[in-house]
Amino acid sequence: MSIYKIQGGTIRSIVNLIPENIKDNLEEELIPVADRESLVAHTGIRYRRTFPMDSVTTTELFIQGISNTLHTLQWDASTITAIVCVTQTPETHIPAVSCLLHNAFNFNVSTTCLDINLGCSGYVYGLHQTLGLLQNQLEGKGRALLCCGDITSKLIQNDKTSIPIFSDGVSITAVEFDSNNEDNCSPFFFNLETLGSGHTAIRSEFVDNKEVMRLNGIEVFNYSVQYVPKHIKELLASVNAEDISLVILHQANKLINDAIAKRLPIPNAEFPSTLFQYGNTASASIPITLVDFLSKNKPKTKHLLLSGFGVGFSMGSVVFTLDSTVHFSIIEFPTDS
């Protein structure tokens, strides 16, 4: 295990952007009609949100999300200390997306920019890096933006294994840190682990000069069920599991999520799912599901466990208490079709 503790940070807002365009798996032409209901029942995914091909870039979505975040929090761009981007669908690999965002908002030269190449575990890794950058700077306080998410649909054209699973979506999380206020902030406990032997479970390859993602459903299931519960239990050993009222798992599919939830000793927690309405939105699935739940429900406590797992095979989990003043929203981004 690889346990980290960071204290002094608070999540101020979570803004999610999803495409307005809705696809229905019961009408997905790539799937035989006779198999569609079974697919929805077992994956848990009825509707998906996707952008039309080449209609928008990941960077443009991040820009929209950051604008909304800065406006909501009344934060001036000059007050941002760091930008961390987690995506596997940048429009180009050079330069880093965080540098493009730096330019778009004319952030200070002192604003630290960092990209992370991770998928379904990426939100937790991004949160760790964002808090860590703020904690380690000499001033001991600052504001940062964690931008994560993907336009996965552009990697899975005509792939009937992946198309019914994945949706597009991004999320912007605003974090504030003040080392002088540590006593008033509850700690974040992280466990960040990797099983490189599982790198073939989800990978990309080039076909006719076009990058496509390949998903081996059985390998993803086997790795998820064999290792993720153990990974989460290691983190639970550092906290009081009975205090956790909400567990947000990466929204992989119903088979995997049910199998993991069944193996976790967290008796008082709810395990909300957004698979039915949003599908698997890769690294944005955790913040989307968290915000969807908070917008409709009041959890018994705001002591949460978030766990992401997938591409790599990478696993990241965090336990923390969500500040009660957090702003959150899910915005539908207009699409042409």
């Binding site: 198999d35 079974s38 697919l39 059985i218 390998e219 299931f221 086997n222 069920v225 064999q226 088979l255």
Partner: peptide
């Protein structure tokens, strides 16, 4: 199908604790 083979693997794991891998299949 790919989905049904996953259901078989999942159910057998549930019932027996044994993992059948994609390489096995």
């Amino acid at each position: 199908t790919s989905l049904n083979s996953l259901l078989v693997v999942s159910r057998l794991h549930e019932e027996t604790g044994s993992m059948i891998t994609a390489a096995d299949l």
